[in-house]
């Protein structure tokens, strides 16, 4: 009986996290079209509901009623499970991310390791989809995406090692608590190079502009999901946006102090700003990064593939290695205000 109650409790917690997350994913697509519209002096979607606010649901309904095409040459089994493979890690990683003080589904000690494992699994969906489609564009897109994602994952992993050194824990709640204090206590400042490397890799990892050669609408039409339609395509779409929210959430937790307000611990401002719940601060930080995603898409031209690989291997990886050495010297000598 107690076990069943516990299971129900766990399920309730997961649903409470998952439903807002899925709504956030839906409204991320809306926000993207709206912001890009404003950047290009258009209005964006404004027909379905007030200010177009029901647009995401209209899109979802439309996709649900469309045919899912199973190409003749495709490997049926792999073709069908590929979307599932790509959305599972993007959602499941949220199990260990704290959205507020103590507001975490599984407070495990190997939290960051689990997140990294889940982030690595995402690439399988892309590669399996590209391979199973048995179409040239899909295979090209999958190869490009695979090579790009694994390249940037190295830089991202190194950047996270820097965070571990500064916080001394793999437990994500403890990583946030290590940053307790006002805005200059958060890891973005002492680890500034790693923060920048992490964010660039995060954008590349999700195959977003300016690093979206994997999709490259104008050259290989849609890359790995060119053969997908209807709900199968929608799942890939959801996975991409869920991944963006995940990367933004991780950035907020690792470098921007998670649920802490920017004035935490200061004499007068601190208590005033602490009245706002930590969850709100966390959401604001995530929203900031999500806005950056859209902003980048609206302003930067696409990189060429060789430039992407050069940036990943020849710039970001050396920068992180050098900064890790600098940081460990700081820690061992006790030098610097932050370590």
């Amino acid at each position: 009986m107690a076990e069943i109650l516990e299971l129900v409790w766990i399920l309730a917690k997961i649903v409470v996290l998952l439903v807002p997350l899925l709504i956030a994913v839906a409204y991320m697509t809306y926000a993207e079209r709206k912001v890009i519209g404003w950047i290009q002096l258009r209005r964006g979607p404004n027909r379905v509901g007030a200010y177009g606010l029901l647009q995401p649901f209209a899109d979802a309904l439309k996709l649900m009623l469309k045919e899912i095409v199973l190409p003749l040459n495709a490997n049926r089994g792999l073709f069908v499970i590929a979307p599932m493979l790509s959305i599972m890690p993007a959602l499941a990683a949220w199990a260990v991310l704290p959205v507020g003080q103590g507001l975490v589904i599984a407070d495990v000690n190997a939290g960051l390791l689990y997140v990294l494992a889940m982030a690595s699994l995402g690439v399988y969906g892309v590669i399996v989809a590209g391979w199973a489609s048995n179409s040239k564009y899909a295979l090209l897109g999958a190869l490009r995406a695979g090579a790009q994602v694994v390249s940037y994952e190295i830089a991202m992993g190194f950047a996270l090692v820097g965070v571990l050194m500064a916080s001394g824990s793999l437990n994500i709640s403890e990583i946030v608590e290590a940053q307790a204090g006002p805005i200059w206590n958060w890891f973005w400042l002492p680890l500034l190079p790693l923060f920048i490397v992490y964010w660039i890799s995060g954008v590349a990892e999700t195959n977003r502009l300016p690093f979206d050669v994997a999709e490259g609408e104008s050259e290989i039409v849609a890359g790995f999901h060119v053969e997908y339609s209807g709900m199968a395509f929608a799942v890939f779409f959801l996975a991409e946006y869920a991944n963006m929210i995940l990367i933004s959430g991780l950035a907020a937790i690792m470098f921007l102090g998670g649920w802490y307000s920017p004035f935490h611990g200061l004499p007068v401002l601190g208590p005033i700003f602490d009245l706002v719940p930590g969850m709100i601060w966390f959401c604001l930080k995530v929203a900031f990064f999500l806005f950056c995603y859209i902003w980048f898409r609206g302003t930067f031209p696409r990189y060429r593939y060789d430039q992407i690989m050069r940036l990943g291997w020849k710039v970001l990886i050396p920068v992180t290695v050098v900064w890790l050495v600098v940081e460990s010297v700081f820690i061992l000598t006790g030098f610097g205000p932050w370590f």
Binding site: I10, I14, L85, A92, W94, I105, Y114
Partner: peptide, 15 residues
């Protein structure tokens, strides 16, 4: 780690 397992199962279920 049980909640993580449940979460993974739920995520697969959604997919």
């Amino acid at each position: 780690y049980l909640p993580i397992l449940v979460f993974i199962v739920l995520a697969v279920g959604l997919g």
